[in-house]
């Protein structure tokens, strides 16, 4: 039922219905936030990446051929935007223009703490797998990585998370 409703929204959005597109974005905003956060690790950049993604999706949605892959398509765009922003940020920092993190970057601290214990190559894969429910072959397509690499990173990411976050938390208790 939910799937049909979502596909209906995608169809309408493809016909340039801004209200349907708005509903779609509201539906997927948390998914976008989790994925972007896994790459960018701060709310301000994450907000920019989501904004850029929404504009690109609206502009290009008429090119989407298979409506059932809307979320995958949107996630791919989002990841590209995140990498763009990260590249620019790294360049800025390398030029000595370090910016202080936003003062209000204090949401979802537990998630951020968990993510921070992981190397970024594991963060995005664990997020896509656990939060977004993608299969390994889908993640491989989204990230343009070999399936075996995704499997390996997923396994190592799990181990790192268990060791660096869960066990550490247990120890503190």
């Amino acid at each position: 039922m939910q799937k049909n409703k979502t596909e209906d929204l995608v169809k309408k959005a493809k016909r340039k219905d801004p209200d349907a597109f708005s509903q779609l974005m509201q539906l997927y905003k948390k998914d976008m936030y989790r994925v972007a956060l896994a790459i960018l690790m701060n709310d301000e950049d994450t907000a920019d990446a989501i904004q850029d993604t929404m504009l690109t999706c609206w502009e290009k949605i008429h090119n989407l051929r298979q409506i059932e892959y809307f979320k995958t398509w949107m996630t791919r765009i989002l990841i590209n935007k995140c990498y763009d922003i990260r590249r620019k940020r790294e360049l800025t920092i390398s030029l000595g223009e370090y910016e202080e993190p936003a003062e209000e970057d204090n949401y979802n601290l537990e998630l951020k703490e968990a993510l921070s214990t992981l190397n970024d190559k594991y963060r995005i894969i664990l997020t896509l797998f656990y939060s977004e429910g993608y299969h390994i072959d889908e993640i491989a397509r989204i990230l343009k990585l070999p399936k075996s690499t995704v499997q390996t990173r997923l396994q190592r990411g799990r181990e790192n998370l268990a060791k660096n976050y869960y066990r550490e938390n247990e120890r503190r208790k």
Binding site: F21, M25, K30, Y33, T46, I50, L111, Y165
Partner: peptide, 27 residues
């Protein structure tokens, strides 16, 4: 085991504002 990735999240204000701004612009 508690799975941090499945817990609900709170959308930061800055993200919500950008989303609203963008949707309004599109509209």
């Amino acid at each position: 085991e508690e799975n941090i990735f499945l817990e609900d999240i709170e959308m930061p204000r800055i993200v919500e504002e950008k989303i609203s701004e963008t949707l309004l612009k599109i509209k």
